[in-house]
Every structure is written in structure tokens, then in C-alpha cells.
Design a protein around this nucleic acid. Structure first.
Lengths: 339, 339
DNA sequence: TTGAAAGCGCTAACAG
DNA sequence: CTGTTAGCGCTTTCAA
């Protein structure tokens, strides 16, 4: 029932090959031919069968994006940026969620579904410390979004995590804060985003000659609003602090909520800085200071890396890109609104 | 280079058909055969070519979800629910954004990309008032997420919009508010979500014997935080009000921010209710009262409708489902915290 | 510049 | 219970 190249060729009085050429804008053909073919396509309502094209050419024109949870605003904004970058190369995006679970991540990487796409953009969470025999048997290229996974010879695209955290803490110190808490550490982890942000935090304290107090560093599981709220409750019970660096904005928002509930004013009593610059930081009360990563750069680079690898097994050694970050000072840490 | 059914068949010493059967768990075969085939699959690392399967069977196992903007938390939560529902039927989800633009929506519906999927879940925004020769030529089934599009004979899945808005306004009235503003109306529109929520708002006022004051009803474009903030600025300049129903949570959050800036306390001076129950409403200060739709019900029903239509052109007349809503009273409108 | 023919890997008849 | 055969619609040699 559906219209095929064949039907169009017949209607236009040319060969099937010519129609294929015209459709894809490849090869060469006269203007007259193109016009006839275009007319036939329009009239019959022809649309190429992408499965057939994919089977024949080995390319589907689809990449998949694996994130822990699309409801996390950072990943929603990342997905938006990735879709925009992908569209620029005529690529569609299949979305999958891992829930940050190691086993789900492995399953997603190994499963048959990977056969449906030309390449994978993978925002790793559960596997940050590396996987078992990971890169084996994965049929198509993978680009990691975030810090490199130990043992994986894949490209990765990340951001200046340590520098961002360091700048944030330096800003809090400049503001006169001395007991600065950190929210979102993962002490078991030696690698990955959390480890780097913690390193930046420690570096800034060290530079200021302030000792490291483990009691001010709180581990949480998922980096969600509720985890941030929970972690802050522990912090509030445990001791006193006048500054807080949350390793992402969602936790910072949860934290501000708890601080408010516990009678501490932000920023008067506690100055808060987050990480990611998600949209709602501009509308929270008070507006949240944050470290903003160059998301478009990240997405565009990751897609470019992936395209580079698709259909080219010999594309050379793994590449790395670290996107810039920028500290955005808003009300939650501004000395001005303390008055 | 990739392993095919053929290779597996040869290694297992059976026919290609038998391997196909085993892979899909269809047909019948002895346990011994299954074991031999499974061993060969494992050893060779066989994975089915989904493009070939799709070409042959006419089903790709992928549906697409079109939303205006994934950065809008409501759509992120909807996408999450849809992916969960789809996974239960072994379906993958391709995500696309329309920016709420009519032309982009049409393009998405008509474009070749639709050939890549078995069906489309479409959250309409630009086309709420209907399209031109819309349902023509769209090759695969469409289920509309939201209010029905005039002139389209598609299934749709929506929620009790009018009832939700009405309940919210009734609650504000019960709380003693008398000048209740509405944020997010689209006066040009006779159909769609905005029109229904406005109708519910008017109904509740009418039931209470309160006249309708157009000055309290603000039109905005996109239902975003910034649009909510901007609309509220206009409202604040224009006159006095002690209650506010925002037609979604994002706008409500933007509104609370502006109210705070203008020196009005929420809920003491203005009680605010939103719509959607996005996660951050629980963490805003004050926590936002809202109308919560049954999102899982919506996603599951929409996916079920779509599956029903896939590969069955004669599946009968369009169906409609209206999911329930529930008013969640939190701090932003609670009389308790006014003291 | 265009045409003919082969076959990508798989599933679905139909046999055996 | 298992094997053979014929394409799905397209791209890609290779010729003309």
C-alpha cells in the first residue's frame, strides 16, 4: 500500500536509481528530471522507508541519549541541547533512562536496543568507577557525557568541575564565610563529577588556609531536591555553618527549603551556591547563585565526536573536551541582600 | 562483519528459521535445540538487526513523543511516565520538540522522520484550534496528549481540566479570597487546555455569585516561569487581588517570585494555586498548592491506545480518556500559615 | 547522466 | 518440530 521508490520511478518515467538520487540530493541528474521526479513524489505522497534505508546503508539517522532521570532539570536541559545539536546534523534522538543504576546502565549498553541507533551519548552515573568487560561487544560508538569512565577507551565531554567548585567556594570565602559545607559528596568514589567538585572545594579551602572539616561534607545518594533537603537536615542537626556549596542546583533548592524551615535566613545566616544553572534558579526565593556550564558547547561537541566515530572504526585515540564554567552570583550568596 | 542469523544457524547446526524462532520465543522447538541456539548466540555475540526486522515486519518497536519543550518540568515528568509505560510494551521512545510552534508541529507530523516510528504521541500546543488538511497523509497512528484537536479523528487522552480549575478556585473562595486572578488564559482560543481551565475558573466564581472581572485574567504566551513572572507584573500594576490561579506550576512559581519582589506575602496577601504538581512545588518557599493530574494513568492509557491502533487501520472510532485530578493544598494557599 | 541487478538481515508463508 | 524460499524498500556496484 505505501508508495515506494518504484512507484515514483514509474510515475516519473525514470529509473529507481534516479529517484533515489533526487531524494537524497546525491549523484547527478538534469533539472528536467529532478522536476519530473519531484512532481511524482509530491503527487503520490512518497516518503522514504527509513528502515529499508537503514538496513541497506547501515545508518539509521538516530542516536540515543542515556541519562539517569529526565525529570532532573539538568538532564532535561541537556537533552534539549543535545536534540538541538543533533538536529543540526539531521539526527533524531532516542531517549533512555538508567535511574543511575549500574545494572540498568550495563543492560542499556548491551541490550538489543542499541541496534536501533548509530551511536550513544551516555551520561554515566552508576558506572563512574568503571565497569566489568565494558567496551566489549558494544556494537556502536559511545561518547560519555561527564567524567571519563576508568577503563573505557571512549571519547568524553565534561566540564571544568573542580574549577567551578573552587570558584564558588572562593566566592563564599570572599563574602566572609568561614564554615562552608559541601553537599553531594560521594566518599566511596575516587573518580567522577562528585570527586572533582569535592577536590575543588578542598583546594579553595586549602588556598585560604582553612582546615578541612569532614563534618561539613555530606554524602547523599541521588542528587535530587529531596536528597538535598535530607542532607541539609543532617547538616543542621550536626553543627554550625555559614556557607553551603551544593554539588547541583536541585540539592541547593532542597537545601534552601530546609534552611528556611529551620529558621536560617539565606543568605544572611547561610550563603548558598549551587551548580548547573537550571532555569528555576532564577525564580527561586532567594534566586540561587550557581556555577553555569557551557551546555551548548557540551552538546555540540559530544554530537560532533559521535558523528566522527560513526562508520569509522579507526578514528584514533579517545578524545576529551572540558567545557567552561562560569560563576553566577545571585541573591542566595550576595552580600548585598544580607543587609 | 556483524553476526547474522545465518552465522548462528550454521554454528548451531540448525536452520535460520529456527534461530529466528528461538530469538523471538515464537513457534516451537525442542529444549535441546533452544540450548544449542542460545549457546551459539552467546558465543558469537549475535544481536538482531532491528532495521531488517523493522523492514520485514513493518514494526520498528519505537514510538515518538512530541512535546513543546522538554525543559518544562511538566513535559519532563510526562516523558518519564510515557517512557515507563512504553517500556512495559517493549517500545522505545524517540523525543521531539515543537517549541509549541504550529508550523514545527505540522512539519514534525508530515516529515519523513515519522517513517522511523510505529506511532506518535503528540502533545499539541500550536495546533489546538485545529490544522489544515491535517490527518491526511500521516502514515502512522497519532494519539493526542491533551484536549482533542478540532477536525482530527484521533484518540486523545486528557485530564479533568475544568474540574481541576474549579476546585482550585472554590478552595481559594473557601479560604476567604474574593478577588481571584487567573494567569495563563489564551483569549483567542475557544478550545484546548487554557480554555477549559478558564471555564472552570469562571464556573467557580459564578457558583459563588462573584462577577467575572476581565482585568483579573491575564493572557500569556508560553506557560513558562518567565511568562508567569511577566504576567504577574502586569497584574500587580493593574490592580488588587488576594488570590491567584496559575494555569500551570511553572507560571505559579514565576508569579510567587514577583509577588515576593513586590512586597506581597504568599499566602498572607495573595494565596496562590498552580496546576500540574511538578516536583519542585514541594520545595518552593512557600510550598505551592496545586492541581495534580494522574500522570501515570495518562501515559499508560495513551500508550495503550496507540498500540491498539498500530497495525490495525480499522480500529474503530476515536476514543477519549479524561484522567482524574486532585487538589493538593500546601502552604501557598493554606489559611494556617497566614497567622 | 541514467539504468539494471544484487543483496543488506530478517520474517512469513508454506512445506516437509 | 524444523527447513526452504521469497521478498520487505532501499542503496550500491557496475554498465551503458
Amino acid at each position: 500500500m505505501p508508495v515506494t521508490l518504484h512507484d515514483v520511478a514509474q510515475a516519473a518515467g525514470v529509473s529507481i536509481k534516479t529517484v533515489s538520487n533526487v531524494v537524497r540530493g546525491q549523484g547527478s541528474f538534469s533539472d528536467a528530471t529532478r522536476a519530473r521526479v519531484d512532481a511524482a513524489i509530491e503527487e503520490l505522497g512518497y516518503r522514504p522507508n527509513l528502515a529499508a534505508r537503514g538496513l541497506r546503508s547501515g545508518r539509521l539517522g538516530v542516536i540515543s541519549l542515556i541519562v539517569p532521570d529526565i525529570r532532573n532539570p539538568y538532564f532535561a536541559e541537556l537533552a534539549d541541547a543535545v536534540m538541538t545539536a543533533a538536529a543540526a546534523h539531521d539526527l533524531l534522538v532516542l531517549l533512555e533512562q538508567s535511574r543511575g543504576d549500574r545494572d540498568v546502565e550495563l543492560e542499556l549498553l548491551r541490550g538489543n536496543r542499541t541496534q536501533m541507533v548509530d551511536g550513544i551519548l551516555f551520561s554515566v552515573l552508576g558506572l563512574v568507577d568503571g565497569g566489568p568487560e565494558l567496551p566489549e561487544g558494544i556494537p556502536n560508538p559511545v561518547v560519555v557525557l561527564g567524567e571519563p569512565v576508568p577503563g573505557w577507551a571512549t571519547d568524553h565531554v565534561t566540564m571544568r568541575n573542580a574549577e567551578g567548585a573552587q570558584a564558588a567556594v572562593r566566592h563564599l570565602l570572599d563574602d566572609g564565610r568561614t564554615r562552608i559545607a559541601a553537599l553531594g559528596a560521594l566518599h566511596g568514589r575516587r573518580t567522577g563529577t562528585a570527586a572533582l567538585r569535592l577536590a575543588g572545594y578542598r583546594q579553595a579551602l586549602a588556598d585560604a588556609g582553612i582546615g578541612y572539616d569532614p563534618a561539613l561534607v555530606v554524602d547523599v545518594g541521588v542528587w535530587s531536591r529531596s536528597a538535598g533537603a535530607e542532607g541539609t537536615r543532617r547538616l543542621v542537626r550536626a553543627g554550625d555553618f555559614d556557607g553551603l556549596l551544593a554539588f547541583n542546583d536541585a540539592m541547593a533548592l532542597g537545601a534552601m527549603r530546609v534552611l528556611e524551615d529551620s529558621g536560617r535566613k539565606v543568605p544572611a545566616d547561610v550563603a548558598v551556591v549551587g551548580f548547573d544553572d537550571i532555569d528555576e534558579t532564577r525564580y527561586s526565593v532567594p534566586a540561587l547563585s550557581t556555577v553555569k556550564p557551557a551546555l551548548e558547547d557540551i552538546a555540540a561537541t559530544a554530537v560532533a565526536y559521535l558523528i566522527d566515530r560513526i562508520g569509522r572504526a579507526d578514528a584514533g585515540p579517545p578524545r576529551a573536551h572540558r567545557a567552561g564554567v562560569e560563576l553566577l552570583v545571585r541573591e542566595s550568596s550576595s552580600a548585598l541582600s544580607r543587609r
